[in-house]
Design a protein around this nucleic acid. Structure first.
Lengths: 134, 134
DNA sequence: GCGAACTTAAACACTTTTCGTTAACTTTCC
DNA sequence: GGAAAGTTAACGAAAAGTGTTTAAGTTCGC
């Protein structure tokens, strides 16, 4: 039974980074090149991203598909689309307009450019009105 | 840039399981043995566990070490230890006694046997009174 | 422009994970 | 007891991930 996703090396680098050390300083401490510290840090961040995405998937397992927001939609129209669709199936959304936009931008920043949705976004909802973007 | 931790196969099995299918039924659908479905499901759960642990580690990066609960401590004494230590450094813990015990059991079940702590548990705390076990 | 910090790409050896098989085992429910 | 559901162990081949190096590329403050 192994631990988390991160290797000892990756956690080591992240801890030193948290302390404010530069990649070169860390490279000296752990006796390797700064390029290597960079790749280790990068793969650590990648692993963290994957961990988050994995749990997001778990949530969508409990949720049902609410609607799909098409590419090109104005970001500020997304909440009203969600409210309308949720009302159709008689579920009250847990979030207000602002929170929805924030949640969307946080979890799907790569699907938003400025004020536009630049990639179809699948919206999931649970019976409790929790919203997830997939 | 890959997706989450789970493979397509693993997500497929989890979805079918969520629908209530048995391992045998899934095995028939995806054309393999039920033993294989079992191992795929098991490794999916293991990956989910690792994803959670990875994010837990992230939180401990933001947190400072509060105290270490030694092996053999009674489980129901843990909260008062935490409250006392947090008070020393003037941080109000976000949780009550019951929630703390629940959180502990959920995140570190392998460190608890019945009413006893069976492995040293490191306790972390953030400035906001958030508690993590490491 | 200079230097320090950081990023990237290609290649390599190495380890771990994954999916699959077969066969035996435990659990659960009637 | 018996059937269905689930688990486990041992093994193999293919795929994916890790830590390194070297060398060339940013980016940013001064």
């Amino acid at each position: 039974m192994k631990d988390g996703l991160l290797t000892d090396r990756q956690m080591e680098v992240l801890r030193y980074r948290k302390q404010g050390l530069t990649q070169q300083q860390i490279a000296d401490i752990i006796a390797t090149s700064k390029a290597n510290v960079c790749t280790i840090e990068k793969s650590a961040m990648e692993n963290i991203r994957r961990a988050k995405e994995t749990l997001e998937f778990l949530y969508t397992l409990d949720a049902t598909h609410l609607c799909t927001v098409p590419t090109g939609t104005d970001l500020f129209e997304v909440p009203s689309i969600i409210f309308r669709e949720a009302e159709k199936i008689n579920i009250k959304v847990k979030y207000d307009t602002i929170s929805l936009i924030n949640r969307l931008r946080e979890s799907k920043s790569q699907s938003c450019k400025a004020r536009q949705v630049c990639e179809d976004i699948i919206v999931y909802i649970t019976d409790q009105g929790e919203i997830y973007f997939g």
